[in-house]
């Protein structure tokens, strides 16, 4: 498609305002880490691949030594400082990464349409048995890195790098354009 303007959406895609995102790398099995994270988010350390949320806060498992803390954008610097202070004795890295990424919200009329739209672009198994609500999957969306999770059966959030946000937005528009309903999920 060279002209995106001719497409009518059946899945709506919007870029969300700046989301506070803190990358925390540390030995996640350490109690001090769990305590520090809980103090900020009110949430426990997530299991592998899980993403937990509570109000404006959230926490996502990124790898065995990395989590991503979600919080209001304006609070990031303060929380990073808190983490650095509480984990001063522990080898760790806490960084405000909010500006590095863009977040898209994808809303579909049906749960199946949402999974169909994503499964056109990502090699992930989007079957509900394989990827349920509350699991973050890091993969690629066509040719760019992305992480996606379903906030509810008909809504997904997708994280991508800021530099490719236009590309990712366009991809989702192409994938979610009318006529392209697959009807698989």
């Amino acid at each position: 498609m060279s002209d995106l303007s001719t497409l009518t959406p059946y899945v709506s895609v919007s870029e969300l305002p700046l989301q506070g995102m803190i990358t925390l790398r540390a030995d996640l099995s350490q109690k001090t880490v769990a305590t520090a994270v809980k103090a900020i988010t009110g949430l426990a350390m997530p299991a592998p691949r899980a993403i937990l949320e509570k109000g404006a806060y959230g926490i996502a498992w990124m790898s065995h030594d990395e989590v991503m803390i979600l919080c209001p954008y304006a609070e990031c610097a303060a929380h990073v400082a808190t983490l650095d202070k509480k984990l001063a004795k522990l080898h760790h890295l806490a960084l405000d990464m909010s500006d590095a990424r863009a977040v898209f919200e994808i809303t579909a009329p049906t749960a199946g349409a949402l999974r169909d739209c994503l499964a056109k672009l990502m090699p992930t198994d989007f079957h509900p048995d394989s990827l349920g609500v509350g699991e973050l999957r890091r993969s690629r969306v066509a040719q760019a890195a992305a992480a996606v999770w379903l906030t509810d059966p008909k809504t997904a959030q997708l994280f991508a790098f800021r530099s490719v946000k236009q590309y990712v937005h366009d991809l989702l528009r192409v994938s979610g354009a009318k006529g392209g309903e697959v009807g698989y999920f």
């Binding site: 498609m1 995106l4 066509a142 490719v164 590309y167 990712v168 366009d170 991809l171 192409v174």
Partner: peptide
């Protein structure tokens, strides 16, 4: 889908 605007990621 890789044609036109989404042929490849443009940073």
């Amino acid at each position: 889908e890789a044609r036109g605007a989404v042929f490849q990621p443009l940073r």
